[in-house]
Design a protein around this nucleic acid. Structure first.
Lengths: 218, 218
DNA sequence: TATGCTTCGTGTACTTTCTACACTAAGCAG
DNA sequence: CTGCTTAGTGTAGAAAGTACACGAAGCATA
């Protein structure tokens, strides 16, 4: 491998912005750092890329280890590599964002003794400083998510397999932080042809039952 | 820096997809590799990230070294890091794409004894195999460029400071590989308000002179 | 100086998409 | 049976996008 040895190598990590919807809000999973630097600060989950695993595999592995979820929507975001972003040395971070649906959002219990919590993204209370440049990464991820749901159908990834149109609309309103017109919304998503009407309805105990839909895969 | 040492580190490179318009075609700059692996194959210009320079700086430096241009449009594309993409070992590549305008597209002469050439992107003749996974990177860059010019104004980055609307239209046609309606195109770009009509015209020697425009910075 | 050639530059009618907006239907509780 | 709450539906106007043809300007040359 001769020629590669001429260059000092940076460390490479993956960092994950894991979103979910809960309590009528967009949430991101953060873990509290147990060691320096930024000890006791909240940070995005992440870790070093193993020498023989792909970046995507590393991201999926961290997702499993830190959030206890598997096979969810996962997409590479951006690579942050300014010297000085980590006081320990040169660390380049390949960031990913993941969407976890309401069904699986149980955080892996604190078996790893990691202190993990979902934080509301838009709660000004939570614009506390994150470790490293993670605030920048999070902001970028939110920007990307907002764009994405306007042009694609990733919104469904945040809902259980069966959902009502009102629930889907609420997801859009939460992410975009603005009200959405009910009739136009339904017209638009149905026209996309990506969701299938089911014969079941959801009776949430009160009022008129809502028809259930499911995402039409592929 | 203790804790970083526990993990073997990959090498990190930046690879550049440098586009320009020349000879009525979209071109990409490739360099012929002088060493193994892929000796004598054509490859995207790129190189290792120095331990104390940012990724963007590394990309700008390579752009200067290999294409001899500076201060052009430069944007991070995607990070490719599959194990095995480089036979020498684990190499993670952060790819960038750059747009070089017609004014500056002189390739730095072969002072570095590098053999560099512009290749037509859509010429099937040139779908020869590139080194490493560079074909994949190039394809992704083309896809991104096509999306980008439809929603933004980066098209101007490929033209000299003063240009005619016909020239701009031709850039779009070349990139999208389809004809564009003249009147609708003019309506659209003028409505964007990003270009300013100049008082000069271009007399290319024959026929009716065309009005010149320039890009309205910021 | 008239004719032909080539590129420049412009407007309108039609279609599609987006936006705003209000009432009836279904089920439950009392 | 009445009242409350959420589900579900259509239409008219505005805006954006698409298709399409001809006169104007300059040059060449007969």
């Amino acid at each position: 491998m001769g020629s590669l040895d001429k260059f000092p190598r940076p460390s490479v990590t993956v960092d994950l912005v894991i979103f979910t919807i809960a309590d009528d809000a967009l949430k991101v999973l953060l873990i509290r750092r147990g060691a320096e630097p930024y000890k006791d600060c909240w940070a995005l989950p992440g870790g070093f890329v193993e020498i023989d695993e792909s970046l995507e595999d590393a991201a999926a592995r961290e997702l499993q280890e830190e959030a206890g979820v598997t096979s969810v929507y996962l997409e590479q975001l951006y690579t942050f590599g300014d010297p000085g972003r980590d006081p320990r040395g040169r660390v380049i971070s390949v960031s990913y964002f993941a969407l976890v649906d309401a069904d699986r959002q149980r955080i892996r219990a604190a078996t790893d003794a990691i202190d993990a919590r979902w934080f509301s993204v838009f709660d000004p209370e939570n614009s506390r400083k994150l470790a490293f440049d993670h605030k920048k990464i999070l902001d970028y991820a939110v920007w990307r998510l907002r764009n994405k749901i306007e042009w694609t159908t990733v919104g469904y990834e945040l809902l259980p397999r069966k959902f009502t149109l009102s629930e889907l609309q609420r997801v859009y309103e939460i992410i975009l932080q603005k009200p959405v017109d009910k009739r136009n919304f339904r017209k638009k998503v149905l026209a996309q042809g990506k969701i299938r009407e089911l014969s079941e309805t959801r009776k949430d105990g009160a009022h008129r039952p809502a028809r259930l839909y499911s995402f039409r895969k592929k």
